[in-house]
Nucleic acid binder design. Structure first.
Lengths: 162, 162
DNA sequence: TATTGTTATACTCTATAACTATA
DNA sequence: TATAGTTATAGAGTATAACAATA
């Protein structure tokens, strides 16, 4: 590559490094999970349902920040694979409770093992202290809501939502 | 929110925190940039072209990890907005050199200011040392290529590319 | 043959509006 | 009226294959 190309500004951007890190994680996931894999979101769903049997679809979606409308197909695929059952709540018939089938219990356990290996691979360059630092820093970054806080800033061009 | 919901496993995943952090960055960008905004990738392109006048489209795409095919529309929109000019290389007529117009020079400067404010907002919860740590950790995570290294691991289910 | 740009296409992810059935 | 789930749809982002022009 021609090394007279100036990437100093680009490389100094947090957003760009975040994007690169996410891509590296996605590449590792896709490669080691193989072609007929569950999506990341679905593996997370299985794990959550395993820890919270009968969890409401709306609750799972809220935790994973997946819109209700988009939950339908994702859960539907898990049902089609025979991993998850939808059961109507006896007390509130609007609500769908999610349960794992026997195959789903196995898949959830395998998914957790896979994700643990996946993260161990990615984090193998770090020591324990650095892993904790990275986790803590990302958590604080994610929890920092600059939009709802809405300090009535003066944006460079337009302002407001959507 | 019902607090008898177990999210300990989910919250401990690096990938989930990375996803949450990326979402927080995207929300801030979208809110403060407004509706008719340039996309993040396009703002990065303007900055790169500003630092490297006449940069080849293929080089820009490689730096930002955007496929050639997808560069066409992104650059085309910048051309349509009157910010960028495509010029054929005199020495290799296959190559398109990207240049900023006068309006593009202004837009690139405004974009850099906007991104600086954007990152400053997101990073305002951190001290200088923590910002450097986060940046360094993300960079190392992104540079850790577990796929090309391909240690011939034993994936949990399938293996192979795509 | 290989590379750059281009076109066409498709798949994923995300977001919104509108509908239903329940409450 | 408000909520959970659903349907349909649209917009981004990303990926591949095939082609023309050029090297």
């Amino acid at each position: 590559m021609s090394d007279d190309f100036d990437t100093a500004w680009l490389g100094g951007l947090l957003g760009f490094q975040l994007r690169r890190a996410s891509a590296a994680m996605a590449d590792d996931y896709a490669w080691f999970a193989g072609p007929d894999r569950l999506r990341q979101s679905q593996m997370l769903m299985l794990g959550l349902i395993a820890d919270n049997p009968g969890a409401h679809a709306s609750t799972i979606g809220a935790e994973l920040r997946i819109a209700r409308a988009n939950m339908v197909q994702l859960v539907g695929e898990l049902v089609d694979r025979g991993l998850v059952e939808r059961r109507n709540s006896p007390t509130d018939r609007r609500i769908v409770e999610l349960h794992l089938t026997d195959a789903g219990i196995e898949a959830a356990a395998a998914g957790k093992r896979f994700l643990a290996e996946h993260e161990a691979r990615m984090l193998s360059v770090f020591g324990e202290r650095q892993r904790q630092q990275l986790h803590s820093l990302l958590r604080r970054l994610a929890d920092h809501d600059t939009v709802s806080d809405a300090p009535r800033g003066k944006p460079s061009k337009g302002l407001g939502p959507r």
